[in-house]
Design a protein around this nucleic acid. Sequence first.
DNA 1: TCCTGATTATCTGTCTACTGACGATAAGGT
DNA 2: ACCTTATCGTCAGTAGACAGATAATCAGGA
Lengths: 153, 153
Amino acid sequence: MSEPAGPPALPPSMRDRVPFLLYRASQISHSLANEMLAEMALSARQVGILTLVTELEPMTQKALADTLRIDRTSMVALLDDLEAKGYVARQRHPRDRRAFLVQPTDSGRAAKAAAVRILDEQQRRFLAPLTPAERAQLSALLTRLSQRPAPEQ
Amino acid sequence: MSEPAGPPALPPSMRDRVPFLLYRASQISHSLANEMLAEMALSARQVGILTLVTELEPMTQKALADTLRIDRTSMVALLDDLEAKGYVARQRHPRDRRAFLVQPTDSGRAAKAAAVRILDEQQRRFLAPLTPAERAQLSALLTRLSQRPAPEQ
DNA sequence: TCCTGATTATCTGTCTACTGACGATAAGGT
DNA sequence: ACCTTATCGTCAGTAGACAGATAATCAGGA
């Protein structure tokens, strides 16, 4: 009775600290997403890449990295894996021989569609505690907070 | 003119995806926090540990890990560093010789106070785009979303 | 008491992401 | 044309966090 089941509660000074709550909520959401994507052997970052290359014009690795705020050295390994799975192809940029244009394959488009279905379900589960109006509020607030300048890497 | 300065904009299908916005906002907040704490050579996680041990009863490493949702093997290194800095001390648990009770030193309490001042300023900067009412809304929404069960590690 | 299983902290190995450096190529000034 | 500087993709090294195994200790039952 003196030792209840769960871990000790957080002190009040932490419970109302927004950066901490944000970090914790993001951890929960992100790990849920990656767990649910594990059956496709993809990470959330890779789904982001697939989404960009299927929905936008062909992009270089650097443009992908800047848009998703992924380090460009990490992009190499992520694309190596996607290429090995047959989901994307690197093509030489016609005007810049240093760069590659990343383009999706047919099976890459199919994988992207399947992954988006999984992430739709993930979002549904994660946002279950909120009403539709609250979800819209949250989305609007986070949009403003996530629009700050990227740290110029 | 055909190539504007910034990276390409995100496709609409990603712009309104809450888990993605949450991840991005958390990244921005977390990296800002760690950058601002760098002058004290502390990480945000370590400030969490200092906050718990100064504001709650003495806790074991496992209780700290569960409360902050940090892996217990990571806790070892974090505490090793805090102990080397003279901010905490490990004391044998009087009733369980396997466990240590982590207690703050005087300089640990001072460091915690200084770190909290830094994090107050970090929160102020990060939430600058929002009105006080919006900050309260966000805090309430995130509190509900971050209260899901911890993944029983 | 003794035995079995669980728990605490630790250590080792692994995986992921970032920092710094490099070769190849491009862009701009002279 | 030449030379200097910047950029793109890549690789090697490094730091952080997690998974699995281990020694010491505790808890509970026969």
